[in-house]
Computed example of a mutant assay.
Amino acid sequence: MADTGTLVTYELHGAVARIGLNRAAKRNAVSDAVIDALEAAAIRAGREARAGVIFGHGPHFCAGLDLSEHSEKPLFEAVLGSRRWHEAFDRIERGTIPFVSAISGAAVGGGLELAASTHLRVADSTAFFALPEGSRGIFVGGGGSVRIARLIGPARMADMMLTGRVLDAEDMERWGGVTHVVPEGQALDHAMRLAERIAENAQFTNYAIINALPRIADMSSEDGLFTESMVASLASMTEDAQQRLRDFLEKRAARVKAPGDD
């Protein structure tokens, strides 16, 4: 059961850190204090775990920015607040371990921005996604113009912001914003299973996947290919990789099978 006095809960389950937004009465809206607590939890997870899961206590993942707090900020404070979101979400996206988000109910505005900072997104059938900034006279400020636009494309993101369009989990999966869709109530369990599987990977390879891939996407093709060669060579030289390759060659590791094969 969640500690009602804690804005963000933290539990270590084996090699997986489970981080929970804990403002269920406000649909887990994100305040400055929540951002600070979330960043601290992500840093701790990077030290203690091999993978992480982010979820929302109660029926909703995150309804986004706490507008009651934001509406009272002077201009420069609002700019600095946006930059704090960027710093905290960068701890997740480009930290030391992969993160999976478990989404049920609302992933709206800043909630969708938070989900976009994770590496895999699991949504159950109750999940819905929206960017209502257009109707509220504001603009995304938690990295969505970069992360969400790269996931679903700027035209689709503009559609959501301009019209207030709300997507369900299946539509968002078709658009590329969700990686797994599961039945109601199963998002957290499925996210934990994925994180446990990820935690079994070589640490260097996980680090390279979450840090090299987005940077390569920002490069020219030639620069990206050169960087790929460097990262691939470094990965293959680690002791972990060499042992895993020996296990495969000596038939101690399972081969890849087609879906459905036992």
Rank of each mutant, 00 (worst) to 15 (best):
T227G: 04
M161V: 15
P154M: 11
G142P: 06
D168I: 05
V122K: 03
S220H: 04
A123I: 08
Q186R: 15
F226R: 14
H180I: 12
P154Y: 09
V166M: 13
M192F: 03
M160G: 05
T163L: 13
Y207I: 05
A212S: 13
R136Y: 09
L188D: 05
G142W: 05
Q186E: 15
A158H: 09
F128P: 01
H180F: 06
V231T: 03
S221Q: 11
N211F: 09
V166K: 09
D124Y: 07
A217Q: 11
E222R: 12
I148K: 00
S125N: 09
G177W: 04
E200D: 09
M157R: 07
A191W: 02
P154T: 11
N201R: 13
E170M: 10
N211Q: 09
M161L: 10
F139Q: 15
A130W: 00
P154H: 11
A202F: 02
Q186F: 14
R197S: 13
M192I: 15
I152P: 02
A155I: 12
V182Q: 12
V146S: 14
T163I: 10
I210A: 06
A208G: 02
F128T: 07
A123G: 07
L167C: 14
M157Q: 12
V122M: 06
L131W: 01
I148S: 05
A123S: 02
M161E: 14
T205W: 12
A208S: 10
L167D: 12
A212K: 06
A195G: 08
G185R: 02
H180C: 08
A208R: 03
S221T: 13
